[in-house]
């Protein structure tokens, strides 16, 4: 018996995603992104919570000094769209469920801890690498920028290098 697939054929999804990316480039002259939006969120929150500290730290100060609100940015709006688009898709395909995705050999708590750790690294790396898998690697590859290919190879190369040591998390 064949197992039922819940998901779209990845090649079709890839072509569709490519067309979305092409649309973004054609309309706005820029690729997709994600991590930049979180920077905007963090900046906005920080400037609410600790405005003095923001003014003192050059990295944040340079971001709030612009007249526009940090959340009124292309990426922030786009990621808001991603959230809604994901929700719509999940609702249509019946995947809305509060749950924790994890490998068979770890507990949910372990999974959460490692998710946070992974998030921290990704947040840090995406700032340093000027964009994440979507902003730097995917969009960068589409416009044939060297940075896109270097970032892509660095992400997946390192991923394969360390995958063995963390196999317990996933298999």
């Amino acid at each position: 018996m064949e197992t039922k697939s819940k998901y779209l054929n990845p090649y079709i999804a890839g072509v569709l995603l490519g067309l979305v990316l092409l649309g973004a480039i054609y309309i706005s002259g820029r690729g997709l992104g994600a991590s930049g939006a979180f920077k905007d969120v963090v900046t906005a929150t920080l400037s609410k919570v600790a405005p003095d500290h923001v003014a003192e730290t050059p990295y944040w100060a340079s971001r709030v000094s612009q007249s526009e609100h940090p959340l009124k940015s292309w990426l922030a709006l786009e990621v808001l769209g991603v959230l809604i688009g994901g929700f719509i898709s999940g609702a249509i395909s019946g995947r809305l469920k509060i749950t924790v995705d994890k490998g068979p050999r770890i507990t949910s708590a372990t999974r959460i801890v490692f998710a946070i750790l992974g998030g921290i690294l990704f947040g840090l790396g995406a700032q340093l690498g000027r964009g994440c898998t979507s902003g730097a690697a995917l969009s960068g590859m589409a416009v044939l920028s060297s940075a896109g290919f270097i970032t892509m190879m660095a992400i997946f190369g390192t991923g394969y290098l360390v995958a063995y040591f963390f196999r317990k998390l996933w298999i």
């Binding site: 779209l8 054929n9 090649y11 079709i12 072509v15 569709l16 067309l19």
Partner: peptide
């Protein structure tokens, strides 16, 4: 899905 991919 096969048809969709082909058409796209």
């Amino acid at each position: 899905s096969s048809k969709t991919l082909t058409i796209i």
